[in-house]
Computed example of a mutant assay.
Amino acid sequence: MSWFILIFSGALEAVWAAALHRTSQARGRRRIAPGLLFLVSLMASTAGLTIAMQSIPTGTAYAVWVGVGVVLTSAYAIVTKVERPTAARLLLLGGIAACVVGLKVVA
Results as ranks from 00 to 15, higher is better:
A61Y: 07
W65S: 08
F8Y: 05
V100P: 01
L92E: 05
A107S: 14
F4V: 15
T58Q: 04
T86S: 15
M43V: 06
A44K: 12
I56N: 10
Y62D: 05
Q25N: 09
G35D: 12
Y62N: 05
G95Q: 10
F38I: 11
K104H: 14
T80P: 00
R22Q: 14
V101M: 06
G10R: 06
G35H: 15
V105F: 12
W65E: 09
I96H: 08
Q54S: 14
L91W: 09
G94C: 00
P85R: 02
A33P: 14
L12M: 14
V106E: 08
A107I: 03
V70E: 04
V79K: 02
A11S: 12
L6N: 07
A11C: 12
A33H: 08
A14P: 09
L103M: 15
V106M: 13
M53C: 08
V64R: 04
A61L: 07
M43W: 15
Q54G: 14
A44D: 06
V40R: 05
G102K: 01
L36V: 15
A63M: 01
V100W: 05
T58H: 03
L42Y: 11
G35M: 10
R30Y: 15
A63K: 11
G10K: 05
W16A: 05
C99L: 13
G69M: 05
K104A: 10
F8T: 15
S74T: 07
A88F: 01
E83F: 02
I56T: 12
A17M: 10
H21G: 01
A98E: 04
I96L: 13
L12Q: 04
A33L: 14
V79G: 01
L39C: 14
F38D: 13
K104V: 06
V68N: 02
V100E: 01
V70K: 02
V71L: 03
I51V: 14
L12E: 09
M53T: 12
V101G: 06
L12T: 08
A52H: 11
W3A: 04
K104L: 08
F4T: 13
A18E: 10
G94Y: 01
G28S: 07
P57M: 00
G102F: 00
M1W: 00
L12G: 09
A61N: 07
S45R: 08
M53W: 09
G10S: 06
A87L: 15
V66D: 03
S55N: 11
A63W: 00
M1H: 02
L37R: 07
A63C: 11
L72K: 00
L103Y: 11
A61S: 10
G28E: 04
L20E: 03
T86V: 11
M43R: 06
F4H: 11
G10W: 09
G95S: 09
K104F: 12
Q25V: 00
A97N: 07
I7N: 03
L72M: 02
W65I: 04
W65V: 06
G28P: 06
I32M: 14
V82P: 03
G48I: 07
G102L: 08
A52M: 02
K104S: 08
T46H: 13
L93H: 09
L20M: 13
F38A: 14
S55G: 06
W16L: 11
C99N: 03
R27L: 08
S9P: 15
T80D: 01
I96M: 10
A18K: 14
V71F: 02
